[in-house]
Amino acid sequence: MTEYKLVVVGAGGVGKSALTIQLIQNHFVDEYDPTIEDSYRKQVVIDGETCLLDILDTAGQEEYSAMRDQYMRTGEGFLCVFAINNTKSFEDIHHYREQIKRVKDSEDVPMVLVGNKCDLPSRTVDTKQAQDLARSYGIPFIETSAKTRQGVDDAFYTLVREIRKHKEKMSKDGKKKKKKSKTKCVIM
């Protein structure tokens, strides 16, 4: 069974824990209790493949930012979460993405942009803004509501699919490099 290491990042209060708990335990946590770091595991079937999701729910508070490099190193894919009623959390996505790329030393890291709290009427981040940002990053965008469960499975499952595509691409690139290195030079 394939294991996928997913990391949920975003500013404090955007609903990272609520999304994760909704996926794992099928219930909505409405009281806000700032996370330092929590880890969850769940076995699911995605596109006919049974897999184990190892999900790291991270601290959004700035005082825990020193811990970010460590979990970013171990993560295979990242859910970059903002709240649709919090423009600052949307603007912060850029910083999370840049930090992930720096730590992973790669421009090509599996990510999904997630606009959470889409059940709320007080939207300050337009869907088109988020779609445009995701398009500019070359990553999928999904709106979710941890409260109603809308888009929750889709967000995590899409990230797994992005990781699969990335692994497939990397193995193809690896095979191309191996083929090239088999060419021999004969000096007579």
Rank of each mutant, 00 (worst) to 15 (best):
N26G: 12
A83R: 07
Q70G: 13
D153Q: 07
I163V: 04
V125A: 10
V7P: 03
Y96L: 15
V44K: 10
I55Q: 01
M67P: 02
G12S: 13
S136P: 15
E76N: 07
S39D: 02
Q25T: 15
V9C: 12
D57T: 00
V103R: 13
E107D: 09
E62S: 04
I84Q: 13
E3N: 15
V45I: 05
F78D: 01
V81L: 07
M72S: 05
Q129A: 13
P121F: 08
A11E: 14
I84E: 15
A59V: 00
D153G: 07
Y4V: 14
E49A: 12
V45K: 10
G115P: 08
N86P: 08
V81T: 10
T2E: 14
F78T: 02
T74V: 10
T183Y: 10
Y96T: 11
C185W: 04
L120Y: 06
D126W: 06
L6E: 02
E76L: 06
K117V: 15
N26K: 15
P110N: 03
R164G: 09
Y4E: 08
C51I: 13
M67T: 03
K176Y: 14
V29D: 05
S145Y: 07
C118N: 09
C185M: 04
Y64A: 01
D108N: 09
V114Q: 05
S136A: 14
V44L: 15
V152W: 13
R164E: 11
L113P: 02
D132K: 09
M67G: 05
Y40I: 00
A130H: 08
E63G: 02
T124M: 08
D47Y: 05
I187H: 07
V112E: 02
L23S: 09
L56C: 14
K180L: 04
T2G: 14
R123D: 13
V8D: 04
L56A: 03
Q61N: 15
L53M: 09
Q43K: 09
K172Q: 06
S65P: 03
C118L: 10
F78C: 01
L159Y: 03
Y4H: 10
M111P: 02
D54C: 11
V109D: 03
Y4G: 15
K182V: 04
K101S: 12
V7G: 04
D33M: 00
K175V: 04
E3K: 13
Y71M: 03
F28K: 00
G10M: 08
T20Q: 00
K178N: 07
L113I: 12
Y71Q: 03
K16S: 12
G10C: 04
D126N: 06
G60W: 00
Y64P: 01
I139K: 02
T35Q: 00
T124N: 08
C80S: 04
D126E: 07
K172F: 11
S17C: 02
I24C: 02
E62T: 04
Y157H: 06
V8P: 04
I46E: 14
D119S: 10
Y64N: 01
V45M: 12
E37W: 11
K117R: 12
C185L: 03
H27K: 14
H166N: 08
G75I: 02
G138C: 05
G13T: 10
I139L: 15
K167Y: 05
R135A: 03
K128A: 07
Q22A: 09
V81G: 04
S89A: 07
G75N: 06
F156K: 01
D38V: 01
Q131N: 09
K176F: 09
I24F: 15
L159S: 01
D57C: 00
F141C: 10
G75P: 03
R149L: 08
G48I: 06
I46G: 07
L120F: 09
L120H: 15
T35K: 00
V125F: 08
V103H: 08
L120N: 15
Y32T: 00
Y137E: 12
S106Q: 08
L56N: 10
K104R: 13
V186Y: 09
D47G: 10
L113V: 08
D47N: 09
Y64C: 01
A11N: 03
N86V: 08
V160Q: 09
K88V: 12
G48S: 11
N86W: 02
L79I: 12
L19E: 13
G77M: 14
D92A: 13
V8H: 12
K42Y: 09
K169S: 13
G75H: 04
E62G: 03
K184S: 05
A18T: 07
K182N: 03
N86I: 03
I24G: 02
V8F: 02
L133R: 08
D92V: 07
G115E: 09
T20C: 02
G75A: 08
A11V: 11
P110G: 02
C118G: 08
A155G: 13
G60R: 00
K16H: 00
Y71T: 11
G138V: 13
Q22M: 07
K16I: 00
E98I: 01
T158A: 14
D153T: 08
R123N: 11
G15K: 14
T50I: 13
P34A: 04
Y71N: 13
I139P: 15
N26E: 14
C185Y: 05
R135L: 12
V44M: 15
G115C: 13
K5V: 05
Q22N: 06
F90I: 09
G174D: 05
M170W: 15
L6V: 13
L6I: 12
Y71R: 14
K169Y: 14
E62H: 03
A66F: 15
T183K: 12
R97M: 15
D38K: 00
F156S: 02
G15N: 07
D173I: 03
G13D: 13
F90V: 11
V29K: 00
L19M: 08
G15L: 02
R161L: 11
V109E: 03
T58A: 02
T74Y: 10
I187W: 15
V45N: 13
R41A: 05
C185S: 13
E98T: 03
D54I: 04
Q99L: 14
L6P: 05
V103I: 10
C51W: 10
F90Y: 09
I142D: 04
L53V: 12
V112I: 05
T74F: 04
K175W: 11
T58H: 00
A11R: 12
R68E: 01
S65F: 12
D57Y: 00
A130Y: 13
S106G: 12
A59I: 00
A66S: 11
E31L: 04
N116D: 07
I55T: 10
G60D: 01
D126F: 05
M67V: 04
L23F: 12
C80Y: 04
K167G: 05
M111Q: 03
M67R: 15
H166I: 08
S136H: 11
E76H: 09
L52I: 12
L159E: 05
Y71D: 12
K169H: 13
V7T: 09
E63W: 01
K180W: 13
N85I: 13
Q129L: 07
G48Q: 11
D154A: 07
D47Q: 08
R149S: 06
R41V: 09
K42G: 02
A155C: 13
F82S: 13
K101N: 05
V14K: 14
